[in-house]
């Protein structure tokens, strides 16, 4: 008896969801593999009216669960599209602030970056890669979470350490014959503005410049990037010195030779 009722309830749910899915699929060319209620919305915000496709070559890696919703490690890897990339946008569908970064990789860096982000709840995390032929290639992953990462005060709010160390950069270069990897950490509270009485205060521009001052990495950052962010970039080849430059939304500039 109990089983039969459960069964009919389940089939009603399946029927309802298949009806819903087919109407969504009808509105777009491809159904969202992550079945996000926000996909149509975020697609319009970030990709506008441009052509797009889901593309397995755009890989977003994240752990299955956000153990610490203020520090969720992600890697965006579009190596398979190397040489054709104009820019990369990453966002989290169900974050109160969705935009994570916009990145212009250029041709001197591998199109692969790792960093940590904040999430407010379980959400798809997506990366869209615009190739030079004007098509967006979209990848993503579903991240489970208990929530609260964007509305938790930064640890800097309870500990004044950051005030005297703001913008300090710790870095290291890891070299090999074919490439060199930069990893660096920047002291910054990265406040989202979603906590009472703590205004938004975050790094919004990042450039890695070569010895001639030319940017080889250019990235715009948004408040979902974690406090005291740690970035990993891979440069092609193993030559020359580089300088890291950042600016936050209060106009503070930070610079260091790596």
């Amino acid at each position: 008896m109990a089983k039969r009722i459960t069964g009919s309830l389940l089939s009603a749910m399946v029927l309802a969801s298949s009806l819903l899915c087919s109407s969504v699929a009808g509105a777009a060319e491809q159904a969202d593999p992550l079945q996000s209620p926000m996909w149509d919305y975020t697609r319009q915000i970030f990709l506008g009216q441009m052509p797009w496709q889901f593309d397995a070559r755009v890989k977003v890696s994240a752990p299955p669960f956000a153990e610490d919703p203020t520090q969720v490690p992600i890697t965006v890897d579009a190596s398979a599209l190397d040489g054709e990339i104009d820019k990369v946008i990453a966002w989290a569908d169900l974050n109160p602030i969705q935009h994570i970064f916009t990145w212009f990789p250029g041709d001197k860096v591998k199109p692969r970056v790792s960093l940590r982000i904040k999430v407010q709840q379980a959400t798809p995390v997506r990366a869209a890669v615009l190739t030079r032929d004007g098509v967006w290639h979209v990848g993503g992953v579903q991240l489970e979470a208990a929530g609260g990462g964007c509305t938790a005060p930064s640890t800097g709010n309870a500990d004044p350490y950051w005030e005297s160390h703001l913008g300090e950069i710790a870095s290291r270069r890891f070299g090999s014959a074919q490439s060199s990897r930069y990893r660096f950490k920047v002291v910054h509270p990265m406040d989202t503005g979603l906590v009472n009485n703590i205004p938004e205060f975050f790094l919004e521009q990042l450039e890695l410049r070569d010895s001639a001052g030319k940017a080889v990495v250019k990235m715009q950052l948004y408040p979902p990037v974690s406090e005291n962010p740690v970035f990993t970039f891979d440069l092609k080849g193993n030559v020359g010195q580089h300088q890291l430059w950042l600016r936050d939304n209060s106009g503070n500039e930070f610079e260091q030779t790596l």
């Binding site: 610490d68 870095s171 950490k185």
Partner: peptide, 20 residues
């Protein structure tokens, strides 16, 4: 596998800081 991934989040930042 799951606990290893959790431990990376809990502990790896300390090892990163030591290596920077």
């Amino acid at each position: 596998r799951a606990e290893f991934a959790r431990s990376v989040v809990h502990l790896y930042p300390r090892y990163e800081d030591a290596a920077f």
